[in-house]
């Protein structure tokens, strides 16, 4: 496992210097800041819509970063021949694969942490301006505004930061899963095909409820089989969705937050490990 960690750290260092990743990060941060301009909504709408929108932005850019990193993790090593020096050292092939995968996860994690940090700053900025809610009405006149109470400000901001952190936690496990899928697929297909396939799986996974409904309603055996395969085999990203509970605060997730967090992280990790195991088995006999 020591070699896995050494390779993962080097992979992170290598990935963080990729221009495409920096571009995605910059666009993501700008988008997160631009979303602050959503001031035309009502107080409650604004708070909920704002947080949900910001988390969706983080999810989309996080996924793009995770996928564009993972699809090149192993092909780049082969293309640049760095894999020859690595695999001629006492490094097991599974250590190498897991190291690359873990490096991809770390890269996605670091980017997610940075985006979350930006969002936390934004949330506190918004809380400073809004007396009633962290993201309450912004259309008040200056006469209506109370002087800034730091304690209240922190309390308001803190409530929304808790939501942001919950969202980021769940997004992280989606990124772990996406990284595992893209890393394993990179052993079979070119980076372009891999990108398309992984994004397809991600989108299908996000609309699992549509597949479920189709499965229940559809009578044609062939369609039922196709939809069934898609439903059961694709990662259930929809189950990671906590945006609903943010938007509709009255709609509680049927379990407590800790249990929900435990469930999604366990599901994400199990699925990712299964996919990674598949990748390890294939990579063990792959000629480089």
């Amino acid at each position: 496992m020591r070699n896995t960690w050494i390779i993962a750290r080097t992979t992170l260092g290598d990935a963080l210097r990729k221009r495409v990743l920096l571009v995605f990060m910059m666009v993501a941060v700008v988008t997160l800041l631009l979303a602050m301009m959503l001031t035309y909504l009502t107080a409650r709408e604004q708070r909920t819509a704002f947080l949900a929108l910001e988390l969706v932005i983080i999810l989309i850019f996080g996924t793009l970063i995770a996928v564009t990193t993972a699809i090149f993790l192993i092909p780049d090593e082969i293309e640049r021949r760095t894999i020859y020096s690595l695999l001629s050292k006492p490094v097991q092939r599974w250590e190498f694969f897991l190291g690359k995968f873990l490096g991809g996860v770390l890269t996605a994690g670091v980017c997610l942490a940075l985006m979350t940090l930006v969002l936390i700053v934004v949330v506190f900025l918004m809380a400073m301006r809004q007396p009633e809610s962290a993201l309450g009405p912004m259309l008040q006149t200056s006469a209506e505004q109370e002087p800034l109470n730091v304690a209240k400000w922190f309390q308001r901001g803190g409530q929304d930061v808790a939501l942001v952190l919950r969202g980021a936690y769940v997004i992280f496990f989606q990124l772990v899963l996406v990284t595992a899928v893209a890393t394993t697929l990179s052993l079979f297909v070119s980076p372009t095909v891999n990108f398309s396939l992984t994004m397809f799986l991600f989108i299908v996974g996000q609309v699992q409820f549509v597949l479920k409904a189709a499965l229940e309603r559809n009578e044609l055996p062939l369609t039922k089989v196709v939809v069934g395969v898609l439903y059961y085999l694709t990662p259930h990203f929809h189950d990671f969705n906590i945006m609903g509970s943010i938007i509709h605060s009255e709609v509680r997730i049927p379990v407590n937050h800790w249990l929900f967090a435990g469930e999604v992280s366990l599901y994400g990790l199990m699925y990712a490990l299964f996919v990674a195991m598949l990748g390890i088995l294939v990579f063990d006999r792959k000629e480089v």
Partner: peptide, 19 residues
Amino acid sequence: LEMRRQISYLPESPYFYDY
């Protein structure tokens, strides 16, 4: 694996992590 502990390899036109 044990053999790889005792050997080394210099590939033709080697490329390493350039950062």
